[in-house]
């Protein structure tokens, strides 16, 4: 049936993600450089990977519910980028043997990225509270995306110089994507903040709800501290100023009041402390895969 099309256009596929969808780290040298603790490296990849996975899942909840079809397509693009980052990072964690308790349940046929995504328990997830909070309305979704993408972009920009070449490569690929995500969210925050009275009210409420979620984002865990010293990771405290400056700039222009910056607290999400909202999200994410632990998809 496709022959009829061949004359009409070149054979080159036009979707961004190809039809290959191979193993994320296929063909990559995954040797860990000397002086880096593989267990720490894997744990750090879970921190970064789980943030991406959980935020991708949150954004996917907008599909078939977004305002206007153009925005549907844009949100799907962001979610696909984040899903791609999650796959690479979880595969990197698996490649250094960090699999938590997932292998107790997942059979050999299941690749590392899926063992980690589908067969870890709640307390093994390392994402921050920032990404795990529910979407709320479109304003809250875009304010949260703005904040999360700004933080992540600042971290990834620095991670391009990581001593782990795999992590550095993942970061380099992610930087362009994250800049796009941040800018998309910023355009919306601007339009909602400076749009109608109602959108302004909603955007302000969104900022007021999202800002407190920054409390445990900038406190390094022991793993992050050790890896920062080893030249592998980025201490989140180091990006605080940059993040604050970008967010202030956007909110100011959006005629929104910048909420009080929350006091730092000890890491919670990063050490596996999560609320019922993540439990629910994981229930949906993992349910089918767990019903068929010996299946291949």
């Amino acid at each position: 049936m496709y022959e009829a099309l061949d004359h009409a256009h070149g054979g080159e596929g036009h979707w961004a993600f190809g039809t290959g969808f191979d193993e994320p780290l296929a063909g990559v040298d995954t040797t860990v450089p000397d002086g880096i603790d593989p267990a720490d490296l894997g744990e750090y990849c879970l921190v970064l990977g789980d943030d991406a996975l959980v935020l991708a899942q949150r954004l996917t909840q907008w599909i078939t519910a977004a305002p206007e079809l153009e925005e549907e397509v844009a949100i799907a693009n962001v979610a696909l980028d984040l899903l791609g980052q999650a796959r690479l990072l979880l595969a990197r964690a698996g490649s250094v043997g960090v699999l938590g308790r997932s292998r107790d349940r997942a059979t050999e046929s299941i690749p590392d990225e899926d063992a980690l995504a589908y067969f870890r328990d709640l307390d093994e997830f390392r994402n921050s509270g920032l990404v795990e909070a529910p979407n709320g309305d479109f304003a809250r979704t875009m304010v949260r995306l703005l904040v999360a993408a700004t933080v992540r972009l600042a971290v990834f920009t620095r991670l391009r110089g990581s001593r782990d070449p795999v992590l550095a490569a993942i970061a380099a690929k992610g930087v362009n994507e994250l800049a796009y995500h941040r800018d998309h969210a910023a355009r919306w925050v601007l339009r909602l903040g400076d749009g109608t009275a109602e959108s302004h009210r909603r955007a302000q409420a969104a900022a007021d709800t999202v800002w407190p979620l920054l409390a445990d984002v900038f406190t390094a865990t022991d793993v992050e501290r050790r890896l920062t010293e080893a030249g592998v990771a980025v201490d989140p405290a180091d990006v605080r100023e940059e993040v604050s400056s970008v967010l202030t700039q956007v909110l100011d222009q959006a005629t929104l009041r910048v909420p009080a910056w929350p006091a730092d607290t000890a890491p919670r999400g990063r050490v596996g402390e999560h609320g019922p909202e993540l439990a629910e999200l994981l229930g949906t994410l993992q349910g089918l895969a767990r019903q068929h632990p010996a299946a291949t998809w």
Partner: peptide
């Protein structure tokens, strides 16, 4: 099935596909 796709690879494929359909509608 987007939220419950049983592997990350399948999730990416399905998301790209559903996104295409939004594009086709447009």
């Amino acid at each position: 099935w987007l939220l419950a796709a049983p592997s990350l690879r399948r999730k990416a494929i399905l998301l790209a596909k559903v996104q295409d359909e939004a594009g086709h509608g447009m």
